[in-house]
Design a protein around this nucleic acid. Structure first.
Lengths: 74, 74
DNA sequence: CCGGCATGTAAAGAAAGTTTGACATCGCTC
DNA sequence: GAGCGATGTCAAACTTTCTTTACATGCCGG
């Protein structure tokens, strides 16, 4: 259906806080580089479990990495 | 992936804080009752977007509803 | 130049999450 | 002791997320 109401700051946090490459972040989170690319591009939202892993890898609380807009959910 | 490393307190919060039925929570979150049943039973973890909707419906921050155990992720 | 490295695209398919519908049980109340 | 509301099971279809593989681009160092 639609283009998810969830946005993320993965790219910014990855670069500013960790300096990691997409590849490195992917490995840390145990997913493929493709997945990171798709998420940073906002093509879809991650599963809850992956969201937790990414936030952990970026050293930020989940809510700081991912934002949800209740309005666009109606 | 196997059985998710994410646990939740949906049932408890639903009963204690909202008094809602599964059906009512399902409607509030715009999912079916089946989904709520499966989540409360821990059969799988929700998508990130649904997790946000559920937390919102329960009046609690996401991190209070869902817990992730980094250990069981390795 | 040429090489490597980081990032990007694309498509097929597997896996996880969600829906639909039909039906069972338990507790309550009329 | 039938009816109803809340909860539960099962299973098949379906959608979204994730993987795999292969190839393209831009940048920088030697």
């Amino acid at each position: 259906m639609a283009r998810t109401a969830v946005t993320n700051h993965i790219r910014r946090l990855r670069q500013e806080r960790t300096g990691m490459t997409q590849e490195a972040l992917a490995q840390t989170c145990q997913v493929t580089r493709q997945t990171i690319i798709a998420l940073e591009a906002g093509r879809y939202a991650p599963s809850l479990e992956l969201a937790f892993r990414i936030a952990h890898a970026l050293g930020a609380p989940l809510a700081e990495v991912f934002e949800w807009d209740p309005a666009s959910a109606a």
